[in-house]
Design a protein around this nucleic acid. Structure first.
Lengths: 234, 234
DNA sequence: GAGCTGTCAATTGTCGACATTTGACAATTA
DNA sequence: TAATTGTCAAATGTCGACAATTGACAGCTC
């Protein structure tokens, strides 16, 4: 998994700060540090065996990515995403994904379109068999493929930031697997639009796909908050 | 312009790193440090009378914003945006601005729409009189207004990052004032669509507006590179 | 003279220590 | 008892110094 060259490249990538940034991001994504939690600089320095300098740099970078929040003289905290913020993120994500679809429709080769078609077919099969364990990675792969092959690194970078931020949404797990077969018919439409090289149609399909996920989110969540407001005030 | 309270708030905003970040950003935006230039840490530390710690933190944050680039053991350099990258940025910007238009169409009050209408009218007047000095700030104000009133902070933040990055495009000044009256008819359509509360139409108007600016860019620029390739190889 | 090697100043990467701030808790007062 | 004040440990903000790396230039070899 890690050849010598890779290791050297990794170590030399700009050393500590970058490594630490990646590791802390992993910790956050894996939920080992939960939203709202404090990220202790000393603790991290001790853990990685470095001084606090590189730690602070790494955290600064993560802050810009929206994963953590720096409160003056208080420390850094893993950001906690509210329903409102999650919706805002979904909107932006939809716009970016719509663009990705449009670009793919304009640029993809026949071979690449076939890859997409195969992917969706596999998903349909998995969905029919209710094989969630197969479905989820395929779904991920499909979205990644579209983003990567949009040929727009700025788009890809911003999109990934948004996806990361959505991981910090508390009730995220509730929506994750929701609407399996429905969602897949949307995938089919996305790929068809791309195959037809119809940019406008692809845009709409991709945009709507994310927006419907957003829709499911608000519906599930309104439910949630209704319950919660009965218990906790604030 | 700066009340005592504001000053205190500013100084306490997290002190040096944030202040330095803002100042370096200003230097870059003002062109005092040009794209491709090296940003010397010691020099900045000396200039601001601090140690290099806060400087490095500030630069880390700017890197995430896409304004500078960190080369391992070499230093940080102000990013230089190529035509290709500028186009990529324009695409994303168009997608975000399209979303902003859509959201404004859904949310703006009558009073706010009237503000927009007045702004466009003033611009038409300035355009007719070829009064560029009046036109430019109005144009800025219009775009800012739409972004701010989209009610989506994530959108606003990402959009602003893109605009900043576009400042680093070398031939930016060439396009800046281009297509004055043309551009303004597009503004009218944008505002009309918002006034009509037609989200889809507003989306298209806003999206196309940016894309046409992009179009002007590539056309002007192809010209440029044609000339330049005759002189410099590489 | 071309190419390789070794040295050197400049600059970045990292560290450990000190100053400041914060929130919590105890002590004091009415 | 409730509110205020004082104290303190923990953590952040900042600094100055040292180590490591880089690119350039001089000197050597052939």
């Amino acid at each position: 998994m890690s050849s010598p060259v890779e290791n050297i490249a990794l170590i030399k990538s700009r050393s500590l700060a970058v490594l630490i940034e990646a590791e802390v991001e992993r910790l956050i994504m894996a939920g080992e540090i939960a939203p709202g939690d404090r990220v202790n600089e000393n603790q991290l320095a001790l853990r990685f065996g470095t001084s606090r300098g590189p730690i602070r740099e790494a955290l600064r970078s993560l802050e810009a990515g929206g994963l953590v929040e720096l409160k003056p003289n208080r420390g850094v905290f893993v950001r906690s995403i509210s329903l409102t913020e999650a919706c805002a993120i979904y909107d932006v994500r939809a716009a970016l994904f719509g663009l990705a679809g449009r670009l793919c429709a304009q640029q993809l080769t026949v071979a690449q379109v076939n890859e997409l078609k195969e992917c969706v077919s596999a998903m349909e099969k998995a969905a029919a068999a209710k094989d969630f364990d197969s479905y989820y990675p395929l779904n991920l792969k499909l979205h990644e493929f579209i983003i990567d092959h949009s040929g727009n690194p700025v788009l890809a970078s911003h999109y990934r930031d948004l996806v990361k931020m959505l991981h910090l949404f508390r009730a995220r797990s509730l929506v994750q697997g929701g609407g399996l077969a429905i969602s897949n018919s949307e995938h089919r439409e996305m790929v068809d639009a791309i195959a037809a090289k119809d940019g406008e149609r692809a845009h709409r399909a991709h945009f709507d796909h994310v927006m419907r996920a957003r829709e499911r989110l608000t519906q599930t969540e309104e439910f949630q908050t209704d319950i919660k407001t009965k218990k906790v005030s604030r």
